[in-house]
């Protein structure tokens, strides 16, 4: 519960801050706290992967692109998008909340140690039951790498 507040604040910070670097930093902070939440759910393998993949690789990539492009601050025009977006978001939150939360009010996550998040079990599941999706995802990553290399290449005539 103590972690959820900062996480929510950081979430707002991602959307609300003016400069892209600030919102990227808020997002890194948010991912960090999410990793701690995963630890509190005793999913330590997933939590550390979260820090490694999101905070360590993806967000550094974001930072790299932000600094490479260094776009001038796009002046956020005060147009119809802001109120409509907020209204829409509020409606979505109310809708989801009214449907989901009442059912879960009584449910507690028991604070017990359990081993589902340990690297041993995750690895076993990944290479037995889920070996086909795993291979497909690795293929997807390969395609992503090739695609980004192709996109980023300067085409010299």
């Amino acid at each position: 519960m103590m972690l959820a507040g900062p996480a929510a604040l950081a979430t707002v910070g991602v959307v609300a801050s003016k400069s892209a670097v600030r919102s990227a930093l808020c997002l890194v902070f948010n991912f960090f706290i999410l990793a701690f939440l995963y630890f509190s759910l005793s999913m330590e393998m997933i939590g550390i992967t979260q820090i490694m993949v999101y905070a360590g690789a993806i967000m550094v990539l974001f930072m790299f692109v932000i600094m490479l492009l260094n776009p001038k601050l796009i002046d956020e025009k005060k147009d119809y998008k802001l109120p409509i977006g907020l209204l829409f978001g509020l409606a979505l939150f109310m809708l989801l909340g009214s449907q989901i939360l009442p059912k879960l009010m009584t449910a507690n996550v028991p604070a017990m140690e359990y081993e589902v998040g340990s690297p041993k079990l995750v690895g076993e599941a990944l290479f037995t039951t889920y070996v086909f999706p795993f291979e497909v995802v690795s293929l997807l990553l390969l395609v992503g790498v090739v695609g980004s290399v192709f996109l980023a290449k300067r085409r010299t005539p």
């Binding site: 979430t11 989801l96 507690n108 996550v109 028991p110």
Partner: peptide, 18 residues
């Protein structure tokens, strides 16, 4: 006694909406 599940799901919903 453990954290209510609603807290996790509530945070998740808030993040999604934002």
């Amino acid at each position: 006694n453990g954290v209510p599940l609603a807290a996790y799901i509530g945070l998740s919903m808030f993040m999604f909406t934002t």
